[in-house]
């Protein structure tokens, strides 16, 4: 969806089953779906997975995101033991999860942990669109809640990178309840006087938008990310007309007062660091 897969340059590479399989780009070359430029993959990744030609921010895996944000070697995972539940006994669901895990080498749609950002301790949660479109079921909700609770326990700032198609349908009402659970945990976090920075990346929609994504003390976003509650297609069907260009994009949300700042990926770590510093009582 994001990047057209050009020919697989090296057959051996296709067989390689390493962690990098979680990225959507396969082969050495990729084509930017925005400017159509053919790009050397490594160059794109060295540029924060942003198109060097047009600035398009490609979707990235939680693994790559953590590498971009956390100081090397500081990330310690929280909630890895939390398993995906199947409250509806939904036909083929757990099997699908298992297959996805093998294929993507990603364990679930969020990865949380403690880390340092330029030496500042923080709790970091990073969602992953490569795993069931970052949808929130019991596992995502539980891990996010554990991360929030850890941040309260350690009195640390909380940083959540959101990317999600919404609540995970296969877990039915239990997914809906994760919205209440995570939001209630954030109420406690808020009461404890702690900082929560939410970063909305492409796309952040549905139940995640209607819960923790929208509750940051500071809400940032990457450029041109799709952000909304209802999906654009649902809205178009409801109003029976096409949506205008740029509707529900980061710039639109900034204009309407729902985010504080749009930050390019290359500046994200430094920006987070600055915001965290600004929220410390002592003078630098």
């Amino acid at each position: 969806m994001v990047i057209d897969k050009i020919k697989k340059v090296n057959k051996q590479e296709k067989q390689e089953k390493n962690e990098k399989a979680s990225d959507m780009m396969i082969g050495k070359w990729i084509k930017c779906d925005n400017c159509k430029q053919i790009l050397y993959k490594e160059e794109v990744h060295n540029n924060f997975s942003v198109c060097p030609n047009c600035g398009k921010h490609f979707r990235i895996s939680s693994r790559r995101r953590i590498k971009q944000i956390a100081d090397e070697g500081t990330f310690e995972e929280i909630g890895a033991e939390v398993e995906t539940q199947d409250p509806l006994n939904f036909d083929g669901y757990l099997k699908k999860i298992e297959t996805l895990r093998e294929k993507t080498k990603i364990n679930e749609a969020v990865k949380c942990g403690t880390c340092e950002i330029n030496g500042e301790k923080a709790v970091l949660a990073v969602m992953d669109s490569n795993f069931m479109m970052g949808s929130m079921g019991s596992c995502v909700g539980e891990r996010i809640t554990l991360a929030i609770e850890k941040s309260i326990e350690l009195k640390l700032p909380l940083v959540i990178f959101c990317v999600s198609g919404g609540a995970r349908m296969q877990e039915g009402i239990i997914s809906l309840m994760q919205m209440a659970k995570t939001s209630a945990a954030l109420a406690k976090h808020n009461k404890a006087g702690l900082l929560y920075i939410s970063i909305l990346t492409d796309p952040t929609t549905g139940g995640v938008t209607a819960s923790f994504a929208s509750l940051g003390d500071v809400i940032l976003s990457e450029p041109n990310a799709l952000i909304g509650f209802a999906g654009p297609r649902v809205i178009e069907q409801t109003i029976n007309q096409k949506l205008p260009e740029g509707f529900q994009r980061s710039e639109f949300l900034l204009e309407h007062g729902f985010i504080d700042k749009i930050v390019e990926r290359k500046d994200m770590k430094e920006t987070l660091y600055k915001i965290i510093k600004l929220h410390k009582k002592e003078v630098k």
């Binding site: 209630a184 109420a187 938008t209 994504a213 209802a230 509707f247 529900q248």
Partner: peptide, 26 residues
């Protein structure tokens, strides 16, 4: 369900729901 209209999005449907969940919890 919440209304999926243009105005609803412009006025922050997601934020409104999220805020209620957070505030009601306490």
């Amino acid at each position: 369900g919440a209304y999926p209209g243009m105005g609803a999005e412009e006025r922050g449907q997601g934020e409104a729901i999220a805020r209620n969940l957070m505030e009601m919890s306490e």
